[in-house]
């Protein structure tokens, strides 16, 4: 057993788990944050994506022990209070979700894409960047629209502030 301490969504959280426990399992079962999902066994579907120390990672392929000491943001920690994060708002506005199961991973991936590209995104880039996230409901059409819209919103807002 290992004691794992993480800063999750800004709060320090600890738990005991077997060394073989995956970060996704730790987040879901030990911390009770079930927004992070698990949809495959081969690190491909991306429904488990969270941010670790500011970068998107697949929490199903990282041991909780590997993550020990890191800062984790999950889907539950993305929005500020009751107000949706611009990426979440764009997914709602553009119907970028249906069954909702891939959505947390998609949103966390999209947020990371926008961060890395700093506003410079087009459809082709978004589609390429979504390689690690599967959705079976939307055909990606509205997800791509939502990411581009969120990017415009966030980058536009940033420019206006400068």
């Amino acid at each position: 057993m290992t004691k794992v301490t993480l800063t999750v969504n800004g709060r320090k959280m600890s738990g005991e788990c077997a060394d073989r426990t995956l970060l996704s399992t730790f987040i879901r079962e030990n911390l009770g944050l079930t927004g992070t999902h698990v949809g495959c066994d081969t690190t491909q579907c991306g429904v488990c994506v969270v941010h670790m120390d500011g970068k998107s990672v697949k929490s199903c392929t990282i041991l909780a022990a590997q993550a020990n000491g890191s800062e984790i943001t999950t889907i539950e920690g993305l929005s500020k209070g009751d107000e949706l994060h611009p990426v979440q708002a764009a997914f709602k506005e553009h119907h970028g979700l249906q069954c909702g199961f891939c959505t947390p991973g998609m949103v966390m991936a999209a947020t990371d894409i926008i961060r890395r590209h700093g506003g410079n995104l087009d459809e082709k880039t978004v589609r390429a960047e979504l390689e690690g996230n599967l959705c079976r409901c939307t055909g990606y059409h509205n997800i791509v629209k939502a990411v581009l819209a969120a990017n415009a919103e966030m980058y536009g807002a940033k420019q206006a502030a400068e």
């Binding site: 079930t34 927004g35 992070t36 993305l78 709602k92 119907h95 979700l97 909702g100 199961f101 947390p104």
Partner: peptide, 18 residues
């Protein structure tokens, strides 16, 4: 826009494994 979206977008969906 959909009434159900907010819970899915904020990780508050409740699936069987949850």
């Amino acid at each position: 826009t959909r009434k159900e979206d907010k819970r899915f977008l904020t990780g508050k969906g409740r699936y069987v494994d949850d």
